[in-house]
Write a protein that binds this DNA or RNA. Structure first.
Length: 116
DNA sequence: AGCTTGACTTTGA
DNA sequence: GTCAAAGCCAAGC
């Protein structure tokens, strides 16, 4: 049936969509796991976004440092090598990081659904 | 098959 | 505003 085929295609591309969204995040802007999860249609599995970033492909293929948690906290910095890399990358792009948190997070926040 | 863990979010106190 | 608990889905053991 066509439904089966559609579901299959949808299911297989989840991590691909996540990576694509992360890649299209503008420089100097940040977003949250929940926003990405919502954009791909699975707002409940916001954890999966982070899980995908860590286990899908190697860090460096996409700007994962632009993805932070809802509070603007760099919760995933410990998964970078070295962990300080995330903060350093953000700072290099003009995003100020203070105490592992993004300064003016709400201002720099980039919503994939709102912009696209 | 079941339990624990995790780059999270939301809700209630 | 912070803190604790519940919900959520997938991977690892």
């Amino acid at each position: 049936m066509l439904q089966n085929r559609d579901m299959k295609e949808t299911a297989k591309s989840i991590e691909q969509v996540v990576l694509e969204l992360v890649r299209m995040i503008p420089k100097g802007r940040v977003t949250s796991y929940g926003a990405i999860a919502k954009a791909i249609g699975t707002p409940k599995s916001s954890r999966m976004v982070g899980w995908i970033l860590g286990h899908s492909v190697e860090i460096g293929t996409y700007p994962a440092h632009r993805v932070v948690n809802r509070s603007g906290l760099l919760s995933g910095r410990h998964h970078f090598r070295p962990p300080e890399r995330m903060e350093q990358l953000l700072t290099s792009e003009g995003v100020l990081v203070k105490d592992n948190k993004v300064v003016d997070f709400e201002t720099l926040f980039w919503d994939p659904m709102q912009e696209v």
